[in-house]
Design a protein around this nucleic acid. Structure first.
Lengths: 64, 64
DNA sequence: ACTAAAAGTAAAATAAACTTGACTTTAACT
DNA sequence: AGTTAAAGTCAAGTTTATTTTACTTTTAGT
């Protein structure tokens, strides 16, 4: 699962810590997701989509 | 998190077991998701979206 | 070069998703 | 009424997401 979080953060001028705070998760969770260590839960993906006003598919891309 | 799996199954004439098989999860997982016991993982949500040719948002709805 | 903020990483613990196996209930059919 | 497929449920176990704490590395500024 790839994602555009890093770019979206840059566009919105947010640090990992700030994004984490907005999404109510830990900074390490954001880092791990950006680094591809694991996938976010569906609720977290929805929160990110809502925050950036994008669809989940715009942010996260399946790689099958 | 609500979802339209039951209706989509009906539209496609699939049992929980058949849907489970198509998505490579157990029948109990489909049942639990339909019953709202837990949310699917993001990868599973993507698989369902691909199968039904819908967006994740079309199948699963956040309730915040 | 020094500093500070940000990012990266890792281990241990908890929570949530998912499996397996087994059993009960519901719906439909004959 | 008896049978069967599908749906519902539950407990115990495994895997994956997430937290917390803590430390290291990178980046940018002075």
């Amino acid at each position: 699962m790839k994602n555009r979080l890093k770019v979206l953060r840059a566009e919105h001028d947010l640090t990992q810590a700030q994004l984490a705070e907005r999404l109510n998760v830990s900074r390490q969770t954001i880092n791990a997701i950006e680094k591809g260590k694991f996938d976010p839960s569906l609720p977290l993906a929805f929160k990110a989509a809502r925050l950036f006003k994008l669809s989940i598919e715009d942010i996260f891309q399946d790689e099958e």
